[in-house]
Amino acid sequence: MDDNRALASVVAESLEHVDSEFRTAYTTEPADALARLRRGRVDCLVTDYEMPDVDGLALVDRDGTDTPFVVFTQRRDEQVANAAADRGGAYLRKGAGREQYRRLAALVREQLGN
């Protein structure tokens, strides 16, 4: 989940490129993300933190399921990282280059217990 459609698309495509077993979908709409989560159609949520309508942790809180998640954000904030960990999720700061997607894929795998 990211409010920036182009970035959400790049993240989804990059994850599939890094790990060919991943099948991704993305949305820029919190209501759509929540509906997908509640229907059990998401194995792991990758969400930005700072978005106009809802922050990533509020989205996780509204979800009401135990869906694993990774907060993937530009924001460098130890409180956000700790809050993600307190909820059982992971945190990764966005960077530059392909390495960030390898790290993100590894965190997704970790969240999935693989």
Results as ranks from 00 to 15, higher is better:
89 G>W: 01
40 G>A: 05
92 L>H: 07
26 Y>H: 15
71 V>H: 03
111 Q>T: 03
17 H>I: 11
28 T>Y: 01
67 T>I: 03
53 D>R: 13
78 E>S: 12
57 L>A: 03
34 L>R: 07
87 R>Y: 04
50 E>I: 11
61 D>L: 09
13 E>L: 13
34 L>S: 04
113 G>N: 10
61 D>I: 00
85 A>E: 14
93 R>Y: 00
84 A>C: 05
17 H>T: 15
91 Y>I: 00
58 A>W: 00
59 L>G: 06
12 A>Q: 01
34 L>K: 06
104 L>V: 10
112 L>T: 09
52 P>C: 02
26 Y>T: 07
9 S>I: 00
40 G>N: 05
83 A>I: 01
33 A>T: 10
54 V>L: 13
109 R>F: 10
35 A>I: 00
2 D>W: 12
99 E>T: 14
108 V>R: 10
50 E>L: 14
90 A>C: 01
14 S>E: 14
41 R>I: 00
92 L>M: 08
63 D>R: 02
82 N>C: 05
35 A>M: 02
83 A>Y: 01
1 M>H: 14
69 F>Y: 05
12 A>Y: 00
113 G>Y: 06
56 G>F: 02
91 Y>W: 09
1 M>A: 14
88 G>V: 06
85 A>G: 08
95 G>A: 13
47 T>C: 12
64 G>E: 04
59 L>C: 08
30 P>N: 05
42 V>I: 13
19 D>R: 11
26 Y>Q: 11
18 V>H: 03
47 T>P: 05
84 A>V: 00
32 D>K: 13
51 M>D: 06
60 V>Q: 04
85 A>R: 15
64 G>T: 03
52 P>R: 12
101 Y>M: 05
101 Y>G: 09
74 Q>V: 14
58 A>D: 14
55 D>W: 02
5 R>V: 12
114 N>M: 10
75 R>G: 01
90 A>L: 11
103 R>N: 13
55 D>T: 09
23 R>P: 00
20 S>G: 12
58 A>M: 02
111 Q>I: 01
93 R>T: 12
104 L>T: 10
75 R>F: 11
71 V>F: 09
12 A>G: 03
94 K>M: 07
8 A>S: 15
71 V>M: 05
114 N>Q: 14
98 R>M: 13
67 T>M: 06
43 D>G: 11
87 R>F: 03
23 R>A: 13
87 R>C: 08
